[in-house]
Design a protein around this nucleic acid. Structure first.
Lengths: 112, 112
DNA sequence: CCCATCTTCAACCTTTTGGTTGAGTATGAA
DNA sequence: TTCATACTCAACCAAAAGGTTGAAGATGGG
């Protein structure tokens, strides 16, 4: 909603929230399912999700008892444009991304 | 140095720090000159600069009494790659950037 | 209706963040 | 030497962030 650079970058500054975004990249998820891999309470995840909603990075839709979380990648666009003003980074390198994503999930979202 | 996604995104989450980066885009600057436009103490700016150094977003070099601050745009690359994994944003749109930059400077770095 | 499930709310706690002030260090200039 | 400039350090403070727990609100199922 607000989606200022402040709220977007601040939201991205937390590894739990980045992991959540990565998970939602694969599919929409219910709140409980989002929380499952993490070693923290459901309430804590609920707060993280609220922060992501506030940054415009996800939306939530309640169907029945279940609240579905959906990634909204367009919210990253403004931030991406801001960053690219600092350097001509090669546009989209998905190989690099896959590696970073794997590292992120490996470090932050493991439930071992 | 550390330059994890955590530290980079967290550093970018503060409008003062983003404004500093925008200023350094034009030229290297001494700490005192960086602080000048802001309505906060030099010590506060010094701390912000330390956070930016820690995130790898700037480097500092002391020559004589003066400590020069230099932008290190490459530190944004990893974060940029991460973000681009969430959407195929048009690579570099400097027009958009100029507008956001102007808005940022107008809102955050005014000393009226 | 009764119960289980999904999610949030409220109160609380600890740590971090972002700021202040005053003193201290290092350097250059006269 | 003496003084001003450039910057950081240390102590402190208020507010925000990130977590907990227990209770409560919706909703669907039997």
């Amino acid at each position: 909603m607000t989606a200022s650079l402040d709220t977007v970058f601040a939201a991205l500054g937390d590894p739990t929230r980045r992991a959540i975004l990565s998970m939602l990249l694969e599919d929409d998820m219910a709140v409980t399912d989002v929380a499952e891999p993490f070693e923290m309470s459901l309430a804590a995840i609920s707060k993280h999700l609220f922060i992501l909603v506030n940054a415009g990075l996800i939306t939530q839709e309640k169907r029945g008892r279940v609240k579905w979380c959906k990634l909204e990648p367009d919210a990253l666009k403004q931030a991406s444009v801001w960053m690219q003003g600092f350097g001509q980074f090669e546009p989209v390198n998905l190989d690099d991304f896959e590696r970073f994503l794997a590292a992120e999930l490996g470090e932050d979202a493991n439930d071992t």
